[in-house]
């Protein structure tokens, strides 16, 4: 097939979508790991298991490598997502006066870039609270990760921001999950598509509920 001119695959519309899909799926796997680790917070052992887990995450060289890969994954997902959103805006320079998009699509499928950006802002805040301060500003020497968590979630404003972010994340995941499988070409028939959608919705609810349980737990029970 050397006879046809080809654009670099990840510069084509479908290639770019594949980047979004693959990085998205990768980030989804990260969320699963992250949530399962975080649920140790609810063990009721005053953070013993959680701290052990946090220490492992901070010290393992393997995790250090994975961390970098994760950062790259985020970066690609974010940069490509924003690039696509900008390109897509340019594809319709004059917008409709009246547009009833609600009749043909769900709001979370249309607002992926906004739910994504919301989650991104939260991510920065979250990294500041639980990563930068610990890793680079010496907070790790003063308190355990568990203590940081308890202290942070005792602030209702942060908890509320956290929960709102998790709701946005759920919307993002609800479309993102099935979208990733669609973009990578896996929804071969309508039935499978429906099942994938249900799994995606279930998954996003589980993730959202799982993460939300943590601030609620600290707000209510401690």
């Amino acid at each position: 097939m050397s006879t046809i001119a080809k654009t670099a695959v990840f510069s084509t519309s479908i290639g770019k979508k594949l980047v979004m899909a693959l990085t998205g799926i990768f980030l989804i796997t990260f969320l699963i790991v992250h949530l399962s680790g975080n649920l140790l917070l609810l063990k009721g052992d005053n953070g013993e298991a959680f701290n052990a887990y946090a220490r492992f995450m901070e010290t393992s060289p393997l995790i250090r490598i994975l961390e970098l890969i994760l950062a790259v994954g985020f970066l690609f997902h974010i940069v490509m997502g924003i690039r696509l959103a900008l390109e897509n805006r340019r594809a319709r320079p004059i917008r409709y006066q009246v547009n009833k998009a609600t009749e043909n699509s769900t709001f979370y499928s249309r607002f992926m870039v906004w739910s994504g950006i919301t989650v991104l802002f939260f991510l920065l805040l979250h990294l500041w609270n639980f990563f930068f301060q610990h890793r680079f500003l010496g907070l790790g020497a003063k308190e355990t990760m568990y203590e940081t968590v308890v202290r942070t979630f005792k602030e209702p404003i942060y908890s509320i921001v956290y929960i709102i972010a998790m709701v946005f994340l759920a919307f993002h995941l609800n479309h993102g999950f099935q979208s990733a499988l669609q973009s990578s070409g896996l929804q071969i028939n309508t039935n499978l598509g429906k099942r994938i959608k249900s799994i995606g919705m279930l998954f996003s609810i589980v993730i959202c509920a799982g993460f939300t349980a943590i601030p609620l737990y600290f707000l209510i029970f401690t």
Partner: peptide, 17 residues
């Protein structure tokens, strides 16, 4: 797909509209 991209259509975001 090459031609589709060259024409200036946007990228699919699977909204189903």
């Amino acid at each position: 797909v090459e031609q589709m991209d060259a024409e200036g259509f946007g990228n699919c975001s699977n909204t189903g509209a």
